[in-house]
Nucleic acid binder design. Structure first.
Length: 423
RNA sequence: GGAGAAAUGGCAGAGUGGUCGAAUGCGGCAGUCUUGAAAACUGUUGAGGGUCACACCUCCGGGGGUUCGAAUCCCUCUUUCUCCGCCA
């Protein structure tokens, strides 16, 4: 969430920048400021009452020590009223503070100046494109046909044991999946990201920390009996490592990578574009997460983009990079680049990675700070990106690498798969 | 799942109703000494709110209660440890 102090000091700027998201936040911002004022004045009043009450309590203690019981009882009588006052004030204060927090949760991150205005994905800005779109032989198939033809992914079997959107990978399909995970993790660790294996369920506090809660709980699977959520991305457990932490400035940059399955309810998304691997309830992803010094975070973001470019180059997949427009930007992000692979058989772009800088938006909720050279605690910047999401990479490989004889395996993967052709 | 013990500052660890935001040690930072470093010595060193700055307020795992007053007493939740049971 945004910092109240920042809103207070940059009111017009915040409103103006949120307009890039096609949001008129004027009334919300005004309310934040007035709630904060109320909160502070209640706090001051409460503090004064408590100070008075503390003072009396100390005097009573002294009286008892000196045996002045009568005087002590006189003073005691006075404290009663103060206690009532402070109780009422405290209740009001909590109410206001809660109202304020709830409102802050509803205000999305302020976009970076480079974010183009726009309402939907149509307004995203293509900033880079690379790789040759292959010319496929007559009768090229989309991946869902290919996976049936070569018997490597079984959607029906998954539907039988769990439901739609939970595919079963088999044989060379399973092996390809495992190869990609290992390959991605290797690339990430080579680039300096430390590898982690993390829980696939998170508690409520972690959900709030990275912003899945309170808004998007409908998108997560909830394990009611134990009140845990299945992770929608490794970003959640990994970023929450740093919840309530004050790190040393010399710890920067912190670079983590983790492979996890991701669980998403994807409530309300159905249709032609969700066929096959295009949109799943469970999928695998290798994620990279960074915690950065505020002055270095955009440099880091560029570094992440370059890193992912390199992977796609090695895989020899045609891809492009989009700078998301305000309307398509996720709630918590200040700047996001999406990577899309071109699926020749489907004749459309498939999102395979999303790389974002959240600046202090997550850090403020997480209370993730570092001590600067003056000993002051300052919010850090958090970033993350997929490196990469498996299903659509697989879709891209199957569709772009198909030949009449079978599906070729990208060269860099052969040492991981142990075969160079699915036929 | 059952029985018991515990949770205090970066770490270790005192503190069982008032003078405790908290002894002491270690670590960190600054300084003295030194050519430099180490050692020794001196000082400093939790977080949040609030203020121009002070004052002041809150926080001893979380929440609630008792009391004029709670790190300290009570309730509750969570976590950790030990023992038993179950189990990949």
């Amino acid at each position: 969430m945004l910092q109240v102090q920042f809103i207070r000091e940059h009111k017009e700027e915040v409103i103006k920048k949120l307009r890039v998201r096609d949001i008129d936040a004027t009334s919300m911002i005004e309310e934040v400021i007035s709630l904060d004022e109320e909160r502070r004045s209640l706090q001051t009043e409460l503090d004064a009452t408590l100070a008075e009450s503390n003072k009396l309590s100390k005097e009573i203690g002294v009286c008892f020590k000196n045996g002045e019981v009568e005087k002590a009882n006189e003073l005691k009588a006075k404290t009663g009223a103060l206690k009532e006052t402070s109780k009422t004030l405290n209740e009001k204060l909590n109410e206001k503070a809660e109202e304020l927090t709830e409102l802050l949760y509803k205000i999305p991150n302020v976009p970076h100046p480079s974010v183009p205005e726009g309402k939907s994905d149509e307004d995203n800005e293509e900033i880079f494109k690379e790789g040759d779109v292959p010319t496929l032989a007559e009768g090229a198939l989309p991946h869902w046909e290919l996976s049936k033809k070569y018997d490597i992914i079984d959607f029906d079997l998954g539907a039988k044991i769990t439901g739609a959107g939970f595919p079963v990978y088999k044989g060379k399909g399973a092996r390809l999946q495992r190869a990609l995970i290992a390959y991605f993790l290797d690339k990430n660790t080579e680039a300096g990201y430390e590898e982690y294996q993390v829980p696939h369920m998170i508690n409520e506090a972690s959900g709030y920390g990275t912003g899945q809660l309170p808004d998007k709980e409908g998108q997560m699977y909830h394990v009611g009996m134990d009140d845990l959520y299945l992770i929608p991305t490794a970003e959640v457990p990994v970023t929450n490592f740093f919840r309530d932490e004050i790190i040393k400035e010399s710890d920067f940059p912190i670079c983590c990578t983790a492979y996890t399955p991701c669980f998403r309810r994807e409530a309300g998304s159905y249709g032609a574009h969700v066929r096959g691997l295009n949109r799943l309830h469970q999928f695998d992803k290798v994620e990279i997460v960074r915690v950065e010094h505020p002055e270095k975070s955009y440099e880091a973001l560029d570094g992440m983009v370059e890193h992912i470019k390199n992977i796609l180059r090695e895989l020899k997949l045609p891809y492009r990079i989009l700078r998301l427009c305000g309307g398509d930007l996720t709630f918590t992000s200040a700047l996001t680049y999406d990577f899309e692979v071109y699926s020749t058989a489907q004749e459309r772009w498939l999102e395979i990675s999303s790389v974002s800088n959240f600046e202090t938006y997550q850090a403020n909720r997480l209370k993730l700070r570092y001590k600067d050279e003056n000993g002051k605690n300052v919010l850090a910047h958090t970033l993350n990106g997929s490196s990469l999401a498996l299903p659509r990479v697989i879709a891209g490989i199957l569709e772009n690498y198909q030949t009449p004889k079978g599906i070729k395996i990208p060269e860099v993967l052969v040492s991981y798969t142990g075969f160079d052709m699915i036929s």
